[in-house]
Nucleic acid binder design. Structure first.
Lengths: 345, 345
DNA sequence: GCGCCTTGTGTGACCGGTCACATTCATGCG
DNA sequence: CGCATGAATGTGACCGGTCACACAAGGCGC
């Protein structure tokens, strides 16, 4: 509440111009760092800006210049650890670059709904980041009109994308390979895989990394068990697997799934890691505190979000930190949930 | 990619006007549903809109009218369950009302940093929701300039806020009371409390609900143990509590904390619920799948987020769904982690 | 037949910036 | 000395909408 008691509307460049005794264009030059402004003039303008508490109106800037300094993140979910961490990373990087961040949730994967969300995002911001880990996200990525800057956060693509397709991803294949190899090296005959839904119809990179490790070790290749994203899916899947006494190692598509798997094994009276070993993906914050604590592969989602923004930023401005996305290396974290198979197996 | 091969810029109301043979003002009237437009004219305009694929430019609308149909959510965190769920609720409600949602993360609680974020939020949108569960949030709520529509998602206030202060909250007092009473009714002599950080210096509603239940039961009132938000804090706190054999029941400020507590008790060789009972707050998605599954009090964060938006929406537009925030009733969910105290205690 | 209100439509200014171009003045060079 | 050049600054239009007001045509009362 200021002394006058009523909120007066903020100062515009013309107010500043009048106060400094120059034209509005000169003010514009000062706030944009244009070189040819006499130092003494610049000084007066800056003083006026300070005095009036002038702040450049973002809306007017966007309308006049076309550039909006805002990005929208389209995602099917905001609460899952991976999604939320990516969002956090994007926000961090965006804030550092003075960009505003908007979010749009893809509640349905239905084409019309997705298209509507993409439209909203398109006319609310100058660039879009799509988290395309699921069908809704994949469709959204496809529905972005050509010409609109967009970066996709995707599953590891099957083939390296051609040239400059602005995608970022983690090395899921390597991650799955590491986890599977770890379990095999403990002596397990093979490793079963409870998969998160794939965003596409093709075999996911996680699945293929898992397969490759099995193949190289000459281990049998069981069918992957398709599941959902949350613990309930893992729980249901593992209740079935638990009946098969030959199952001694289970790799889970993410840590939430692994949580459900642990629970199901417990309910089935099978001890972890005594009888069955379990490994997850992501290294979510709670994984280290489970009992048994969860062996998992740490993925840097926050860094992934930052990369996504950096890439988009590079497209939006010619200032060129367009360093090709450094695919961060997944890191195996061995904890209590994995161990050698039982002696009698 | 359209046939012309180059992206032409979107149609404006003047393009539509030309196509329909009317003035731009008439087009404006049509898209705003103004009554006095001859039906035949309206028809032609609508046809032109359809044909040209006209969409109203949100930026221009905001600049010209002052209203922006956008809200910004200020929060210290986007990944914790409660925060993320509130955000999700806000987004849901906002999307339904055709509002855009921006987020701003309060990375530091330092005054200058908070003020800067609030400023950014202020000039990016017409209204703000602040999640004020922590010092950064509380400061942000205080730093919002008078006159700017804002709604706070806060801890249960000590006294009912005066009149129309636009705040929403859950009934933390009742929730703590329920959980504590539940544990006492199982026969525990008293209940220890591991607290999440309070946003203010005053006693939180959770603490006071817990105290009240103890008092009514004539149970001893141990000092609450101050902790952090995540499992690590609960873990550290419980390692100490575990040494005290008289501790048979622990109430935790949230489910993440409870997870750390469960872990610490396990490491200390104290069984749950055999020797110690544990209860949490929030009913996070993983709580049902822990071993033992967690007794907790379910809070409707998503609904809270929706209420927050509804309130803000009511302030921003005179269309009046300003029904006073229905404080949602917390629901005790009894699971495996709570049971009677050991016989020898 | 006149004034008056209502309905339908158009005109000009404005929101707060940017952009393209014009203007002024001092300087360098042939 | 005259003229081209560049630095410093100003003017007008524009981005795509809204708002306040003007204005023409038609219906109604008297």
């Amino acid at each position: 509440m200021n002394v006058t008691g009523h909120t007066r509307r903020p100062a515009s460049i013309r107010d500043v111009a009048t106060a400094a005794g120059v034209s509005y264009q000169t003010v514009s030059r000062v706030i944009n760092g244009h070189p040819s402004v006499r130092p003494s003039t610049r000084e007066r303008v800056l003083a006026a800006i300070e005095e009036l508490g002038f702040r450049r109106n973002a809306t007017a800037l966007a309308l006049a210049s076309g550039r909006s300094r805002a990005v929208t993140v389209l995602t099917a979910n905001t609460t899952h650890y991976g999604y939320a961490s990516i969002l956090q990373g994007i926000e961090e990087a965006a804030r550092a670059a003075s960009y505003a961040v908007g979010i749009g949730v893809l509640e349905s994967a239905e084409d019309a709904a997705v298209a509507a969300e993409v439209q909203r995002a398109a006319d609310a911001s100058g660039g879009i980041v799509v988290i395309a880990y699921d069908p809704a996200g994949v469709r959204a990525l496809g529905a972005v009109p050509a010409g609109l800057p967009v970066v996709g956060v995707v599953e590891t693509p099957a083939s390296p994308p051609d040239g400059d397709r602005p995608w970022v991803w983690t090395d899921d294949r390597e991650a799955a390979y590491q986890a599977t190899s770890h379990l095999l090296s403990l002596g397990h005959e093979t490793v079963h895989y409870v998969a998160i839904p794939s965003s596409t119809r093709r075999t996911s990179a996680r699945t293929s990394g898992w397969r490759q490790a099995l193949k190289e070790a000459g281990a049998p290749q069981p069918r992957p068990v398709q599941s959902s994203w949350g613990p309930a899916g893992g729980h249901a899947a593992a209740l079935k697997l638990a009946k098969d006494r030959s199952v001694t190692a289970i790799l889970c598509g993410n840590d939430d799934l692994a949580l459900g798997v642990l629970r199901a094994l417990h309910e089935s009276g099978r001890s972890v890691p005594g009888e069955v070993s379990v490994a997850g993906f992501d290294d979510a914050p709670h994984s280290a505190f489970l009992t048994p604590s969860l062996t998992t592969v740490r993925l840097d989602f926050t860094g992934l979000g930052r990369s996504a923004f950096a890439l988009l930023h590079g497209v939006l401005e010619e200032s060129a930190p367009v360093a090709p996305h450094p695919v961060s290396v997944p890191e195996l974290v061995v904890r209590e949930s994995s161990g050698p198979p039982p002696a009698d197996a």
